[in-house]
Every structure is written in structure tokens, then in C-alpha cells.
Computed example of a mutant assay.
Amino acid sequence: MPPRRAVTGRSQEPRQRFAEELRLLRSGRGDSLRQLGEVLGWDSSLFGKMESGQTLGSPEVVQALDQHYGTPGLLLTLWELAAGDPAQFKERYRRFMTLEAEATGIQQYSPAVVPGLLQTETYARRLLCLGGLAPGAYLDQQVDARMNRRGLLYGDSAPQFRAILDETVFRRSLLDREEWQEQLKHLNEVADQPNVTLQMLPFSAGLRELPNTDTALLRLPEGRTVAWVETGYDGQLVAENAGVERLQFSYDRLRDHALSPRGTAEFIQRLLEEVPWPSADSI
């Protein structure tokens, strides 16, 4: 195997260096692109484009490759240099993404918007635009990252995933009817996965726990649980037992008041059958 150059921010060709490392690692393992796609759960064409320098991929994909090749942090460092903005991924969120990829179980609560793992591409794009991202290459990169992240829910090693969504999530629709129908149908399709449970917390439950905090509880292979809590402006990884237990208690109380998975699927179907509202183009 050819010797590798040192990882450095002074490289004049960070994108080329990243693609080169991907090719070297796959060659060293003797994997084909098809085999790599089957093992990691992404389309093999994505890895081909990354190795040729056509795309950088998402941080979720790169972390999965780091884990596959046994190169913790190396590829993600190269990716950040190639992306040109290493500071955009704070250490705590990077740690959360790593733990999320390792989790054997994920419990999610979303009080206002469809969570990232359940979003369609259109929903993700509109939400990121509302968050301040202007149309362009960086927005496209973030949308791709969110879409690639959804691969966590599929495959033999997919975690058990339960999502409780407040009724607000279902009532705060996209203005375009077809786009919103696509998102609702996607929720029902994902909920058909054997490892996925989807529940709706109805307005009739009244004011409940975690009213403005997106929460994810991650059960890790060694048996411990950590949590990620997020508002519209900040996110925090919670690892201490007392904090995680409080969040778990709140989540369990929410689940007690939520519709059953079957009742939730029926609720979504009723939304799909409601009289259509005008599309965004006609307003």
C-alpha cells in the first residue's frame, strides 16, 4: 500500500487527499464498491463519487467509514479539511453523531417539527432554509447529509427506534399540499419498518413534559444511555446518570399519554384523506 501523507490543514489539495485516502482504505480491505454499500447501507454509487472527488458525502457517511475501516477520526478530519469549515461541527454534536450511529436503541421526542431521521428531502430543505441557509452548494450538502443519516433506520444492524411526535408536528404542515402528503406518507412507510414505532401525542393530553425540547435517548451497546437535547439555537449532550434519568422519566410520561402506533397510523391516514388545501403556488 502506498505511504500516506500526513493529515494537515496546509494541504493544497484537501479534497484530493480525502478521495485518495478513501481509495487506499478500500483497496487495502479488498472491498468492491458494491460490497461497501451493502455493508454500510448506502448506495454504492455514493462511495464511487466520493472516491472520484465528485462529492464529499455527509459526516454521517464519513463516520460510518471511519468505523468500518478502524480509523477513528481520520476520515472525518480529512472531510472537515476538504469541506473548508472545520468549526461548523462542534465537538459535542460530533460526539452525538458518533453515539447515534452506535446506538442499539433510539427514543425520540419532537414537539414542533418532524425529526431529521424521518424527514423527506423537501421537508428538510424547507426547514433548513427557514433556519437561515441560503440556496446553494452548502444547503445542498446539508440536505444530503440529512438524507444519508436516514440510513441508520434500515438494514440488519438498524437500532430499535421509537418516535413520539406532538400533534403540532402534524398540524404545522408544509404549504404545498403534495409536498406535505409526501411527508405524511413517508412517516407511515417508515413506521412499517419492524424496528420503528411511531406515536402521536394529541392536544387532548394537555400541557406535558418537554414542551419545547427536542430529545433523543440513545441506548448504547454497553448498556448505558445518553441523551441529546436541542432547542432552536443550541444542543447539549447529557451523559450523567441523574440528567438522563430525568429525561427518561419525562419521555415515559409522554409515551403514557400518546396514541398507540395503530391509532397514530390511522390519524395520519385521516390527514391524508382530508379536503386538500390550496398549494403554495396559488396563495
Results as ranks from 00 to 15, higher is better:
Pro2His: 10
Arg5Leu: 13
Ala6Ile: 10
Ala6Cys: 10
Val7Asp: 13
Val7Tyr: 03
Thr8Ala: 11
Thr8Trp: 07
Arg10Trp: 14
Ser11Arg: 13
Gln12Ser: 14
Phe18Val: 04
Glu20Ser: 15
Glu21Phe: 06
Leu24Glu: 11
Gly28Met: 09
Asp31Ala: 15
Asp31Met: 15
Ser32Leu: 13
Ser32Cys: 12
Leu33Ala: 08
Arg34Thr: 15
Leu40Gly: 00
Asp43Cys: 04
Ser44Thr: 14
Ser44Glu: 14
Ser45Tyr: 00
Phe47Ala: 11
Gly48Lys: 04
Glu51Thr: 08
Gly53Asp: 05
Thr55Trp: 07
Thr55Met: 06
Leu56Cys: 10
Leu56His: 06
Ala64Val: 14
Asp66Val: 12
His68Asp: 02
Tyr69Ala: 02
Thr71Asp: 06
Gly73Val: 01
Leu74Ala: 08
Thr77Met: 09
Glu80Asn: 03
Ala82Leu: 04
Ala82Arg: 05
Gly84Tyr: 05
Pro86Gly: 03
Ala87Met: 09
Phe89Gln: 13
Lys90Cys: 06
Arg92Tyr: 01
Arg92Cys: 01
Tyr93Asp: 03
Phe96Val: 04
Phe96His: 02
Glu100Gln: 11
Ala103Trp: 01
Thr104Leu: 00
Gly105Met: 02
Gln107Pro: 02
Gly116Tyr: 05
Leu117Asn: 03
Leu118Met: 08
Thr122Gly: 13
Thr122Gln: 14
Leu127Asp: 08
Cys129Arg: 15
Leu130Trp: 08
Gly136Ile: 09
Ala137Trp: 07
Gln142Met: 15
Val143Cys: 07
Val143Gly: 01
Arg146Thr: 13
Gly151Ile: 08
Leu152Tyr: 06
Asp156Arg: 13
Glu167Phe: 01
Val169Arg: 03
Val169Gln: 06
Phe170Cys: 10
Ser173Pro: 02
Ser173Met: 12
Leu175Pro: 01
Leu175Tyr: 03
Asp176Tyr: 01
Glu179Met: 14
Glu182Val: 14
Lys185Ser: 07
Lys185Val: 05
Leu187Gln: 13
Leu187Ser: 09
Asn188Pro: 01
Glu189Thr: 13
Val190Lys: 03
Val190Leu: 10
Gln193Glu: 07
Pro194Asp: 00
Pro194Gly: 02
Pro194Gln: 01
Val196Pro: 02
Gln199Trp: 01
Phe203Met: 09
Ser204Lys: 11
Arg208Phe: 00
Leu210Phe: 00
Leu210His: 05
Arg219Ser: 06
Pro221Arg: 06
Pro221Lys: 06
Gly223Met: 05
Ala227Arg: 09
Trp228Gly: 00
Thr231Leu: 12
Thr231Asn: 14
Tyr233Met: 13
Asp234Val: 11
Asp234His: 12
Gly235Pro: 11
Gln236Gly: 05
Asn241Gly: 07
Glu245Trp: 02
Leu247Phe: 00
Gln248Lys: 15
Gln248Pro: 06
Phe249Trp: 12
Asp252Leu: 12
Asp252Thr: 14
Arg253Trp: 05
Arg253Thr: 12
Leu254Thr: 07
Asp256Ser: 05
Asp256Phe: 00
Ala258Gly: 04
Ala258Pro: 02
Ser260His: 10
Arg262Asp: 15
Thr264Glu: 03
Phe267Asn: 10
Ile268Met: 15
Leu271Glu: 14
Leu271Arg: 14
Leu271His: 14
Leu271Val: 11
Leu272Glu: 08
Trp277Gln: 10
Pro278Tyr: 02
Ala280Glu: 10
Asp281Met: 04
